[in-house]
Every structure is written in structure tokens, then in C-alpha cells.
């Protein structure tokens, strides 16, 4: 199999299939879900059978339906956070690289400051103070994540900025926005795409972790992380219910990383073979 002129190894193909299935479920969830995820359809912790493929949960809700519903929230949130963090990180990172001097110094020191704070603890504090509704969650995590994107975007842009065609644009009198958008961004896409995949899976895991700790997604909404928390008591009773959402988290993370590894490999090859 080939994609964009590059051979796709088996692991990357597998990763793509996993991502595709997850995306499909997240988008078409309400139509494919067998039951309403909030309906109590039977006894609590009922075993799996032909009707309820994964069994029922502590309140007698269908676990499969809740997983399908949780996919939308888990993936949707992670996607929003990653996109927002990339918008912030790329614009600030490129600006720092192109403007240089004191703009670079100030932005870089602010980022160093944010990076020096332990992310989980910092998110904990912000969410406890500002409350845990979804917009606050998204913005907080995006800002924290954008510091990593800033670092990458800046270092990539510093290299591109040193090339003659950027200097030619500057000599022409082009403004900052043109240089960032037309001269630097198109040449910085491959490493940023690879980083996007990586950041997406980190954001995804981070929401899951926050939800597990009780400060992420709040009931009655559920994502996979909060489902693991809700079902965790069953571990001591030999139940495998918490493993379903946990497995879904692991599977999607691995799938994304397979694809990211491939993108990184393709990118590093194409840069080393260029003269």
C-alpha cells in the first residue's frame, strides 16, 4: 500500500484502521448505539449476553452504548484541545522565531515559566478554582499544551527563518503575517503534523486521567476516563468492566502512535536524502 508516494508499513495501516473506526463511532455514535446511554435497561452489573454485548454498569445502563457515547466526548475534547493548542503554539512560536530579539525572549520565558509547573497539579488547581465545565477544561489544557507546541514551532521556524527565501521576503518589505503564513508554515508542516498526532494522544490521555481523578468530565456526561473510575470497584470483584474503556483508551493511543511513527520516519528520511 502506498500513500502520498510513500510505502505504508503494516503497523501504520493498522493504526489508520483503528483511528478510522474510532472516528466513525464518534461521529455516528447516536445512530449505531443499541440503547440510550442514560437509560437504565436492567439490573446493575448484569453479565454480558446477546442483547447487552458488554453487560450493564453500576446503574444498569448498557456499557457498549455508554462507550460509544463516551467516544464522542473523549475524542472530540482531545481534538478541540489539540487544535486550540496548535493555533496558539504555532502563532506564538513562529512570531518568536521571526521577530527574534526581545519578543523571542519574553515569549520564551513565559513558556519556560509554564513548563516549569507540573501540568497535572497546575490543571488541578485551575480547574478547582474556575470550576470544571467543558470550555474551562478545553482552554486550560490547550494553554498548558501549547507550551510544548511553542517549543517545537519556534525551533522549526528558526531554521526556516535563516533561509534566503525568507530573507528575500523580508527585504521585499513583507509583513510578519505573510512571512509566517506563506514562507514558514508550508515548510514546517511535516514535523508539526507528527507532533499533532502525538499531542492528540497526550491530550486524550490527560482528559482520561483528569476524569478518573474526578475533575474532568462531570456526570451525567461520561468519557472513557470517567467510566474507568466508575467501574473501578469491579476490579476487586473479579469484574472486567473497567478494562473496556481502559482498553479503548490504550487502543486508540497505540493506533495514533503507529501512524505518528510512520509520519516521523517518512519525514526524517525525506530530509536526510535531500542534498
Amino acid at each position: 500500500m502506498k500513500l502520498f508516494g510513500h510505502k505504508v508499513p503494516f503497523t501504520a495501516q493498522l493504526g489508520m484502521v483503528i483511528i478510522f473506526i474510532n472516528a466513525f463511532v464518534a461521529i455516528f455514535g447516536p445512530w449505531i448505539s443499541p440503547f440510550d446511554p442514560t437509560d437504565m435497561v436492567g439490573d446493575s452489573w448484569a453479565d454480558a449476553d446477546a442483547t447487552y454485548w458488554l453487560g450493564l454498569d453500576n446503574l444498569g445502563r448498557d456499557i457498549l452504548s455508554r462507550m460509544i457515547d463516551g467516544a464522542r466526548l473523549s475524542i472530540g475534547l482531545a481534538l478541540m484541545i489539540t487544535m486550540l493548542s496548535f493555533s496558539i503554539g504555532i502563532v506564538t512560536g513562529f512570531t518568536a522565531a521571526v521577530m527574534g530579539k526581545w519578543v523571542d525572549i519574553i515569549l520564551s520565558r513565559i513558556v519556560d515559566l509554564l513548563l516549569s509547573l507540573p501540568t497535572l497539579i497546575f490543571a488541578f488547581v485551575v480547574l478547582s478554582v474556575l470550576g470544571t465545565d467543558i470550555p474551562v477544561l478545553v482552554v486550560t489544557l490547550a494553554v498548558l499544551d501549547s507550551t510544548r507546541v511553542f517549543r517545537l514551532a519556534r525551533s522549526v521556524a528558526v531554521n526556516i527563518n535563516a533561509l534566503d527565501f525568507v530573507e528575500a521576503a523580508r527585504l521585499r518589505g513583507e509583513g510578519l503575517w505573510w512571512i509566517i503564513r506563506k514562507e514558514i508554515l508550508p515548510n514546517a508542516v511535516p514535523p508539526l503534523v507528527a507532533e499533532f498526532g502525538l499531542r492528540f494522544s497526550f491530550a486524550f490521555l490527560f482528559i482520561a486521567a483528569l476524569s478518573f481523578l474526578g475533575i474532568g468530565v462531570q456526570p451525567p456526561d461520561a468519557d472513557w476516563g470517567s467510566m474507568v473510575r466508575d467501574y473501578r470497584d469491579m476490579i476487586s470483584l473479579d469484574g472486567i468492566q473497567p478494562l473496556y474503556p481502559a482498553g479503548a483508551i490504550a487502543l486508540l493511543t497505540i493506533g495514533i502512535n503507529f501512524v505518528v511513527d510512520w509520519i516521523l520516519a517518512v519525514h526524517s528520511n525525506s530530509t536526510t536524502t535531500e542534498p
Binding site: 533561509l163 534566503d164 527565501f165 527585504l171 518589505g173 514562507e183 508550508p186 515548510n187
Partner: peptide, 25 residues
């Protein structure tokens, strides 16, 4: 601090044409 017209009137040609042209344009 220079205005566009003075920038226009003096142009520069580089040694390495490979890096003087944006590969994505």
C-alpha cells in the same frame, strides 16, 4: 525603517538559488 519604494529599487540575488526560492510556492 525603510519605505517600500526604496526597498523595491535595490534587489538582491543570492549565491544559493536552492534556498533562495520557497520550495512550497
Amino acid at each position: 525603517q525603510r519605505n517600500l519604494d526604496t526597498l523595491r529599487k535595490v534587489q538582491l540575488i543570492y549565491q544559493q538559488p536552492d534556498v533562495a526560492l520557497n520550495p512550497h510556492q
